[in-house]
Design a protein around this nucleic acid. Sequence first.
RNA 1: GCGAGGGUAGCCAAGCCCGGUCAAAGGCGACAGACUCAAGAUCUGUUCUCGCAGGAGUCCCCCGGUUCAAAUCCGGGCCCUCGCACCA
Length: 958
Amino acid sequence: MSLDFYSIEAKWRKAWYDARINESEPRPGKKKFFMIFAYPGVTGYMTVGHMRGYSVSDAIVRYKKMTGHEVLFPVGTHATGNGAISFARKIERGEQYTIESLKANGVSEEQISKMTDPMEVIKFFNQVYVNEYWKRFGFLSDWRRFTCTIWPDYSRFIEWQMKKLMAAGLLIQRPYYAPACVEHGPVAIDPSETDISKGGNAETLEYSLLKFEFEDGRKLVAATLRPETVFGLTNFWVNPEVEYVDVQVGGEIWVMSRPASDKLKFQKDGIVVKGSADGASLMGKRCKAPFTGKMIPIFPSALCDPNVGSGLVMSVPSDAPVDWIGLVELRRDKAALERFGITDEMIEGASPIPIIDTPGWGPLPAVEITEKMGIDSLSDPRLEDATKEVYKTGFHTGTMNSACGEFAGQHVEQAKDSIRTAMLESGQADLFYDLSEEVLCRCGNKVVVKRIPDQWFIDYANPGLTARSKEHALTMKILPTEYHENIQSVLEWYKERACVRLGNWLGTRFPFDKRWIIEAIADSTLYPAYYVVSKYVNDGSLKPDGMTEEFFDYVFLGKGDGASVSKATGVPLVVLDRVKSDFEYWYPLDINLGGKEHMTVHFPVFLMNHVAVLRPQHWPRGIMVNWYITSAAGKISKSKGGAQPIPATAKRFGVDAMRLFYAHVASLFVDVAWEDEKVDGYKDRLERIWSLVNELKEAPEDAPSAVDRWLDARMESRLGQLHESMEDYDLRSYTNTVYFEIPQDLRWYGRRGGRNRATMLRALETWVPLMAPVTPHFAEELWQELGKRPFVSVEQIRPADITEKVRLEEAKERLVGRLVEDISEIAKVTEMKPKKVFVMTSPRWKMEVRRMALEQTGKADASALIKAAMPKVPADARRDVPGYVKDLLSDVSKASAADRDNMSLDFDEAATIADAKPFLSSEFGCDFDVVPADDPNRTDPKGKARFARPGRPAVYME
RNA sequence: GCGAGGGUAGCCAAGCCCGGUCAAAGGCGACAGACUCAAGAUCUGUUCUCGCAGGAGUCCCCCGGUUCAAAUCCGGGCCCUCGCACCA
């Protein structure tokens, strides 16, 4: 039979939303549970991978709802930044891929043409996310609370947050260097290239600009990423073919390439370009190195690119392969030597000077690596690899050697900072920022690094804030547990973070300076609180105008009195107090679930902003991280998986099969590849369960037997296991039990001859609700089949009651199961088909001795136990005692606490097995004879009885 | 480089925090049997090696250590994936 999942899903989600079981209202006195997943950025269609975290969230929320909690599970979207602008521009430019993908999703031409407007893009995808993804997946989310970060009311909230941060002294200003178009101002450099037409992968590099004094007092400035190598300077490189300029900077004249001076203008005030200087005129002369004061010769090099750094380069041939090869080539280039009057002695004088001890390298790594790789020309492309290799190991593992004065013995990383700082402070160096590759604005102009003198930052380095956040994080439920530990160091590492920016962005204006727009991370950290408010905005009872600082102070911080706040804001007192009490009911947030990319970005600031702004009782309680569903596509084809649109995939496999896939395929904390076959497997699984349930519910009335008692007990202990799994929101373990182990229990029940209708129904009534969190539509359909109303989704899953009786029933069945295994094993090994099986249980005294062994405390003492046991053992069995005790103690020592509990259960094994005789006979197709060991008239073929142990009766078959 | 995660039987994947219940859950695949005219579906069993009595041997990336005992703890190594800040 094939179930029509598509219509089942449509039916139930409509029924839920019509009945509004997804809506959340405070129920004072009732436990609450408030969960969100990190809202997605509005950047286009999502893939099936994104639904993983979302589906897991809904399952957790549904479980909580079914275990006595009033739940709040709101959703929203994040549209701050340039995602929507970028998308709109792609439409505007007529980018085929984007337009085709919209068409493939059934979007009309008319709608597409509207989407050249970013706001339309946002409107469109907001609707897609809610209707085609979240509602389609049956989420019990309170849709009335939907919010989007660029809505005016949301902005009021963000303004308030910034004011609170300011009041707490956490907003600070300092200079910052950011990429900007010379014409259009700030641009974003990112691979999607919204603002730019070239260079999406460029990085901003921070160069140290070292000043080398020339004979006439001018400073030749060399840009370097490794200022600590000043100790190894041997010469200076100048490109004789390049035009250099004299630049007035303060009271100094700097020499650099013209492009460098153009860039510098954006980074320093009061720069005046005085005139050009000929590179060739410097050649063969000397300049004075900063810091060491050493006089070094100036040599020609074609490698000085006027567009990189300052166009002048200092030469450290010991550690820079390029510099070393430069010298090698120069020595060969007799024409150049002659032209510039450079003598062999001068080059000799520029021999490499060892400055860094690097494990695994000799004193001159640059020389060593070029020789090893056989590089002897500047045109060799491998020179770049050589540079990287030397740089990497030297920088991270090296220490400065004795040539480095007071820095000798320091790690290179550390020395770099110290030396740079020292040179900056003494005026021998400056800083210069440049991009790692050419970046062009959409207008075609160059993008440069521009100094922003008054950039605002949130001071996440604030020691008090950091300390309180770290301390609070320890009390939180953070999963996986590795992250619980690790977030401590993330919080420690977190420094100031720019929180506003200029340029072409969507978002909230900075309340203290409207030129700035609040940046995308800064406006998405405290927002779970806002879902309490958004509902009242969406239903019209709150207007953005009334949402002032006082308003939020009152509802979130309990400041002021209602009457005067109401008066000042124009918000009716009832509404005001309603929002406030809602907030106090729902907050704090119980879980924030987000993808692993948030671990070093969103989660720490989410936590710190709560700590900075809200009162301690409202700080978040939990964080959960999900890893990704990756696409297996790469290997075969794009259409293979992962990239397929969500609605079509949902139609093909069914939403519940997908939800089960997400929950069960792997732990949430590892990446897993999407595979159609796997999802199909889960669909099959649901269909199998469907037929199993339908078969079972038709069970006839029958007198209950031992196996009925067992099934009741089994369901009880499964229930216990499930609640335990959910303590850590371990949905994988949960689904494994519900969808795989319970069906096995039920089949075993049938195999064991169970056919009691009442027992069956009891089991089903326990089981079906357990499926509701993960496969809710499917569970509803089953619930209806069982004649239940209205929704399984609002049923309660009761706590488990694991009594002594439950454990006893399970132990009895374990005995039977174990016996079946043993008999099969013997039959297999001996290759016999038994005609008759004798089962001989262990004598009382073995039970007694086991009890004594369990009671033994401390180190197992075999001889003491044997002595103590002897009096209880019948004379003719005493010779068996030592061997038995030896085995017993080894079992006991290996046993866990639970095992020991089980071992201590005492029941009549012979009676239990006798009870199962009809089952055993039909399993093995032969007669069974159960022989209690203590029966004086027992038969004991081949003397096997003495091998019986509690839980492992002796078996003889013929 | 820094930070994080990972490497488990044919494949996917639990277990590792809290060592012994682990030859290691579950799924897929494969093989055998049942049902069936047949196929499919479903159900049952098997699926590291050896074993004519329920047992033994070897095993969880590699090497070493701790321990009565290691997939699990510690040290070292090899390999893979991801994040690193103004991109959400």
